[in-house]
């Protein structure tokens, strides 16, 4: 059963279609890489999948629920509980420490304090940053920031993790570390992963690679 389904999804800016007629089926625990040149529409597609943007045509179903028809509140709720996001530029909240950044989704979900502590300790351990728990984002290296971002995205055990060029702003070694972390953690908790990238190496950790060009999947990649 697919956790996330896209059918005939298209998105238009002004009069030109950025993406069009995209179909996707993501099953639990599956890792997919969206590979393609700049401007091919992969980030747009990712935003659509994350409910951050609405398609102009087609439907997207998360656990069978149409994102298209969900109210903004329901969308936010889905993003809290079922989706996780990792950005190229980390987007950590600069005024929260590493640990607090990781806690944030759990606090949004109003988990009990004890569970938050437990889960947070577990995650910070998992991303290997226990010693930096109290550090401000500005004090972290790029690789460390992205590891925090990964932990944050996975904190609420989302069904789907969306990652937008997670290694795009990192050096090779840090990139590798983040990639293996992504693979390892999603594997561990059974989250599916959709990763936008243009690095073949990054795509290596995925079960499937979808190549995009001009807003469409290239033939035979489905």
């Amino acid at each position: 059963m697919a956790v996330l389904q896209a059918r005939g999804v298209g998105r238009r800016f002004e009069s030109s279609w950025v993406v069009r007629a995209l179909d996707l089926d993501l099953v639990a625990g599956e890792r997919i890489a969206l590979l393609g040149p700049s401007g091919c529409g992969k980030t747009t597609f990712l935003n659509l999948l994350g409910g951050l943007d609405r398609p102009d045509e087609g439907v997207i179903l998360l656990d069978g629920e149409s994102l298209h028809q969900a109210s903004p509140a329901r969308l936010a709720d889905l993003r809290r509980s079922r989706l996780g996001t990792v950005f190229q530029f980390f987007h950590l909240i600069p005024t929260l420490t590493a640990e607090e950044n990781i806690e944030l989704p759990l606090r949004m979900l109003a988990w009990p304090e004890a569970r938050i502590r437990e889960r947070c300790a577990e995650l910070i351990q998992a991303v290997g940053l226990a010693h930096r728990a109290a550090a401000w984002p500005s004090e972290l290296s790029g690789g460390e920031m992205q590891r925090v971002a990964v932990a944050r995205a996975l904190a609420a055990r989302p069904a789907v993790l969306l990652a937008d060029e997670p290694t795009g702003n990192l050096d090779r070694a840090s990139g590798q570390a983040v990639l293996s972390l992504l693979a390892e953690l999603t594997e561990q908790q059974g989250s599916a992963l959709v990763m936008v990238t243009h690095s073949e190496a990054a795509a290596g950790i995925c079960h499937r690679v979808l190549r995009m060009e001009d807003g469409r999947f290239l033939d035979g990649t489905l």
């Binding site: 994350g50 951050l52 903004p72 509140a73 936010a76 709720d77 889905l78 993003r79 809290r80 509980s81 989706l83 996001t85 950005f87 987007h91 950590l92 909240i93 944030l104 989704p105 949004m108 979900l109 944050r152």
Partner: peptide
């Protein structure tokens, strides 16, 4: 943007 992605309404 990231807060919204994290599910902030």
């Amino acid at each position: 943007w990231s807060l919204r992605a994290l599910g902030a309404t």
